[in-house]
Amino acid sequence: MTTQMDGLTRKEIHKDGLVGVLCTPPGGPAPGVVLLGGSEGGLHADDAALLASHGFAVLALAYFGASGVPRDLVRVPLEYFGTALRFMAEQDSVRGNRCAVMGGSFGGMTALLVGATFPGQVSAVVSIAGGGVVLQGIDTDGDFWHMIDTEVPPYTWRGEPLPFIANPSTAEMRRQAAAGEPVALRPAFERGMEDTARLQAATIAVERIQSPVLLISGGDDQQIPAEALNDIAMNRLADGRHLRFPEAGHGICVPPAHPMTETDEQGPGVRLALGGTPEATVTAQHEVWRAAVAFLSD
């Protein structure tokens, strides 16, 4: 189905196994962007429309957690993202035969992984609160602690699971949950990073990326240690830039669409701590959005 709203054309995509919404601005062909959501899954069509309003042809791509794609982030074939890149290269609304990949949180990590796997098809990478290490997948066949402590690979490549680091729960996380406090997931990832052998095996070969890369981190991110994970990528990149917002939290992942009054959000059975202050995070959201649009426009 194709619709028009606010001067943009929105087209639902169900082709070659892809599930998404392609948002295009009026006028001639525009630079292409594949937009990836994070660990919440689903389809981020409104975010794609906002980005398209700045002059981009944007594919909001669902890769799990939506009808037509896997329910869970478990063993999703990386080839799926290659199909999306080829689809964009074939669209009359997209300028050129390469497009950018942009994502936040798990989508930010995935954007780096896609850039490293399909370097000749990617024109730029924007990774917001992501990082250069493959993280554990998400299996929802159980409660919150099952999701945290069940080690499953998020992706496969040519049928083989990619190495990943675990994010085992900690005693403090369980205390926070029992007390009704927002749970900070960051210590689970930091604990997983202590396994240096697994960390090395799960590190993304971002040096294969043949395009500019923009990394963005909140220094007080309590969901993941984004700054440390992005530093791992930065140390291997030939053409990378790392923007840091010391007092911002994980909320920098979303566009600056709404005021922020809290630094936690409802998760699966618990509240999750995002980190940062509302003021610092909202300010960072605006700066992140401006930086990403400018970077993609270059």
Score class of each variant (00 low, 15 high):
1 M>C: 10
8 L>G: 05
9 T>D: 05
10 R>P: 00
12 E>I: 13
13 I>F: 07
15 K>C: 14
18 L>R: 01
20 G>M: 04
22 L>I: 05
22 L>T: 09
25 P>T: 03
26 P>E: 15
28 G>V: 06
30 A>N: 03
31 P>F: 06
35 L>D: 02
37 G>Y: 04
40 E>F: 13
42 G>V: 03
44 H>R: 13
45 A>Q: 11
51 L>H: 03
55 G>N: 02
56 F>S: 09
58 V>M: 08
76 V>I: 12
80 Y>F: 05
81 F>S: 02
84 A>E: 05
85 L>D: 04
87 F>C: 02
87 F>Y: 15
89 A>C: 07
89 A>H: 04
91 Q>P: 08
95 R>H: 10
96 G>P: 03
101 V>F: 08
101 V>H: 01
102 M>D: 00
105 S>V: 01
109 M>C: 15
115 G>A: 02
119 P>V: 06
120 G>P: 11
124 A>D: 09
125 V>I: 14
125 V>D: 04
128 I>L: 06
131 G>Q: 00
133 V>N: 08
141 D>C: 11
141 D>P: 07
147 M>A: 13
148 I>R: 00
148 I>V: 15
149 D>T: 07
150 T>R: 09
154 P>S: 02
156 T>D: 04
165 I>Q: 09
168 P>G: 01
169 S>W: 10
169 S>G: 15
170 T>R: 08
171 A>C: 01
172 E>K: 13
180 G>M: 02
182 P>F: 00
183 V>K: 04
185 L>F: 13
186 R>L: 14
190 E>S: 10
193 M>I: 11
194 E>Y: 03
198 R>G: 12
198 R>P: 05
204 I>D: 02
204 I>N: 04
209 I>W: 02
219 G>Y: 07
220 D>P: 01
227 E>P: 01
239 D>V: 09
239 D>H: 15
239 D>M: 14
242 H>S: 04
247 E>M: 11
248 A>G: 06
249 G>D: 00
251 G>S: 10
252 I>Y: 01
258 H>T: 13
259 P>D: 10
259 P>F: 08
263 T>G: 09
264 D>E: 11
265 E>Q: 15
267 G>M: 01
270 V>R: 06
271 R>C: 07
274 L>E: 07
277 T>N: 04
280 A>G: 03
281 T>H: 02
283 T>R: 15
284 A>G: 02
287 E>Y: 05
290 R>H: 11
290 R>D: 15
297 S>V: 01
